[in-house]
Simulated scan of single mutants.
Amino acid sequence: MMGAAGVTEELKARNPMRWAGLMNTLKAQVEEVLLQELVYIRFWA
């Protein structure tokens, strides 16, 4: 997901605020996917 979003070490060095924003967005997306999977496993499996 990081590669698709363009989150790189170069971006981190060049524009740390943009990097942090993208990382926060990715973290929220991953948490959402995990929570959906956990709910699915618990209630439908």
Rank of each mutant, 00 (worst) to 15 (best):
R18I: 14
I41A: 08
W19A: 03
M1V: 08
L35V: 08
R18F: 04
L22S: 01
E31W: 05
M17R: 13
F43D: 15
A28F: 05
R18E: 15
A45Q: 10
V7A: 04
W44K: 14
M2E: 08
L11N: 00
A20I: 03
R14L: 02
N24H: 10
L22T: 00
V30N: 08
K27S: 13
W19G: 01
F43V: 11
K12Q: 10
E37W: 09
L38M: 11
L26S: 00
Q29A: 15
L11I: 03
N15Q: 11
R18T: 12
A5L: 14
F43Y: 14
F43G: 01
E9C: 06
E37Y: 10
L11A: 01
W44M: 13
N15F: 02
A4T: 10
P16T: 00
N15A: 12
M17H: 07
N15T: 04
M17A: 15
A5Y: 04
V30M: 12
G6P: 06
V33K: 11
L34D: 10
T25A: 14
V30E: 07
G6V: 06
E9T: 10
A20W: 02
F43E: 15
A20C: 05
L11F: 04
T8M: 06
V39N: 12
K27I: 06
Q36S: 12
L34N: 09
L38V: 07
Q29T: 11
R18N: 09
W44G: 02
M23E: 01
A5C: 08
M2S: 12
R42M: 11
M1N: 04
A13F: 05
M2I: 05
